[in-house]
Every structure is written in C-alpha cells, then in structure tokens.
C-alpha cells in the first residue's frame, strides 16, 4: 500500500475514534469523571443496530452500498445508546454520594454490566452486519487506495455528525449552556442554567455519538462484546492528547491517534529506511514500531502527553 492508502484508512478509522472521543470528552468535562463505560456504550450502539437491521432488513434501495435499513438501524443504535446512558445516569450516577474517583470506579462496574448483558445475549463470538461486503472503489485502486463505499459512508456520516455538533455547541442555547457548564458548573448554576438538564443532554449527545461510533466500528471491523472496551484506551489516548474537556481538542486528538494507529505500518517502513546508529538502536526501534504495537504506541503517546503537556494540544480555555 502507498502512503495515500494508509492515509485513507487512517481517515476512516479516525472518524470512529473522533465519534468516541467527543462523547468521552463531553462527559469528562460536564459530569466531571473519566467514564470507563464509554467504550461499552459504543458496543451497545453496535449491537442495537445489529438487532434492528436484522429485524427490518434492507428496506428497498441503498446509498453508498448500504441499504436504507442500515441507516434506520444506525439511528436506533444512537437512540438506544443515548437512552441507556441517560437511564444509567438517572438510576446509578445521580443518586451516588461519592467523589469523581468513586464515579470512575462505579463506571467500571457499569462497563462490566453492559458487556456482560451483551455477552449473555449474543455470546462472545464475532459477528458482522448482514451487509454485502464491497470491493474497493476501482477508480482509486491505481493510487494504492483501497477503500470501499462503506468507508466513504462512515467518513461522511462522521463528518455530518461532527459538523452538527459544532453548530449545536456554537449557535444554540443548549450549546452555550453546555460550554458554560464545562467552564464553571457553579457559575453556570447561579446564572440560572438548569445544570441537571444540561447534564442529561450531555449524556444524550455523548452516548449517541458513541453509539454511532460503535455501529461504524462494527461495519469497519466486526462486532464483538469486547470491541468497545478494547477501543476505550485508544479513545482515552485521543481525549488526553486533545486536552481533557475540550471537544475540539478531542476531535483533533481523535484524528491524530486514528491516523497514527493506521499509519504504523508506514512508519515501520520509514524506520527501516532511516540510517539509525548504533545498530542495536535501529533493531530495537524496528521491532517496536510494528503493527502489533500500534495501540501501545498510542498509549505511550498518551502517557508522554500527560507528563509534558497535561492540557493537551488544544491547551487550556478551549471548549
């Protein structure tokens, strides 16, 4: 594959990471804790879409190689993820009388409950959406880019969702309230903002985007009960790289981490070509920059960012 090919793959994978990281970042800044159940919220979205798609079928026509029924399933996936997240907030997080660390630990329990329920219902094996796999787009193959129409659909939907969120945050009342709350919850409250309601909307938006990300992840790879949890740390890496609490930072971080993840094979070619001395160092780096360590590279970047620039690339003040 050529550089262009890796970049195209990176773009698609980044779309999924961005969808996940926005929600995680929103919840981190407004509900004020690291939500370890976020990855499993993605899984919930994916499996809800799987069930819906199985029930409604194709519904006639198709766009970008995906039947109409799939888009309906996508909407159901988003809705179910949002409803589950709001119910969890109402039933579990809100009545709790613990600090943000306690909430973090609780969210791990929630993550396990989500995953266990899915695993009991669907088993632990991989499944796929019942969509006919497509061949790569012919016109792009000469450039070494092997992406399918499905990938284009993933990228396009993600861009639409992100633009929608941008409009919501910048130009609507709710968006202004959310930004005010992320900035200073107490001040927002004394200004007459109903912080509880804003928090619920945060969960709806965050979990909805995560649900969409889960559906796309299922389309990009396959579905498994662990899919979300396995991606969670990568999403955390993206959020931290972008700066916790900053939505636009999370977008940038998600984009970068997704790119780095998919570009790892390219980097390993580069490393082999570079004249690194001494030789043992060259061997070491060549061994470490391989596809097996794609995630590990993201985690190391995350730790380095935490140490060197805890506010992330977006820095303080951006929301």
């Amino acid at each position: 594959m050529t550089v262009l090919g890796y970049l195209a793959n990176g773009l698609v994978f980044s779309s999924i990471i961005v969808l996940g990281s926005i929600g995680l970042s929103l919840v981190y800044s407004i509900a004020d804790f690291a939500n370890f159940a976020h990855g499993d919220t993605m899984t919930i979205g994916a499996y809800s879409a799987l069930v819906t798609f199985g029930a409604v079928g194709g519904l006639g026509g198709a766009v970008l190689g995906l039947p109409y029924g799939f888009f309906l399933a996508l909407i159901v996936g988003i809705a179910v993820a949002a409803v589950v997240a709001v119910a969890t907030e109402k039933l579990i997080y809100e009545p709790l009388d613990v600090d943000s660390i306690g909430l973090l630990i609780t969210s791990i329990g929630i993550a396990f409950i989500y995953r266990a329920v899915i695993q009991i219902r669907f088993g632990s094996d991989f499944t796929r959406f019942d969509v006919r796999p497509l061949r790569p787009i012919e016109a792009l193959v000469p450039y070494g880019v092997r992406i399918t129409l499905h990938d284009v659909a993933i990228f396009g939907s993600a861009v639409a969702l992100v633009v929608g969120l941008h409009v919501l945050l910048q130009y609507t009342d709710l968006g202004r309230k959310m930004r005010a709350m992320a900035d200073n919850p107490d001040l927002a409250r004394v200004s007459g903002i109903r912080t509880k309601r804003v928090k619920l909307w945060t969960w709806v938006i965050g979990a909805g985007l995560a649900g969409a990300g889960g559906v796309f992840l299922g389309l990009f790879n396959q579905l498994a009960p662990r899919m979300g949890f396995n991606l969670l740390l990568v999403i955390f890496a993206a959020v931290i790289l972008g700066g916790i609490g900053s939505v636009y930072g999370a977008m940038a971080g998600g984009f970068l981490i997704g790119m780095i993840n998919q570009l790892t094979p390219f980097f390993s070619n580069v490393v082999e070509a570079l004249p690194i001395r001494p030789n043992w160092l060259a061997t070491l780096i060549e061994n470490l920059v391989t596809i097996e360590y794609a995630n590990a590279i993201a985690f190391v970047i995350m730790v380095v960012v935490l140490l060197v620039r805890p506010n992330g690339i977006a820095g303080e003040g951006a929301t």
Partner: peptide, 17 residues
C-alpha cells in the same frame, strides 16, 4: 464468563451505592 462479569459489575455498583 459473562455471569462472572455481571456479578463483579453489580458488586462494584452496589458497594459504591
């Protein structure tokens, strides 16, 4: 395996609650 996971999750939430 999932039953174990469920119990662990429920224990965490119940203790914190």
């Amino acid at each position: 395996a999932p039953l174990r996971l469920l119990l662990i999750g429920v224990v965490i939430v119940a203790v914190m609650r």
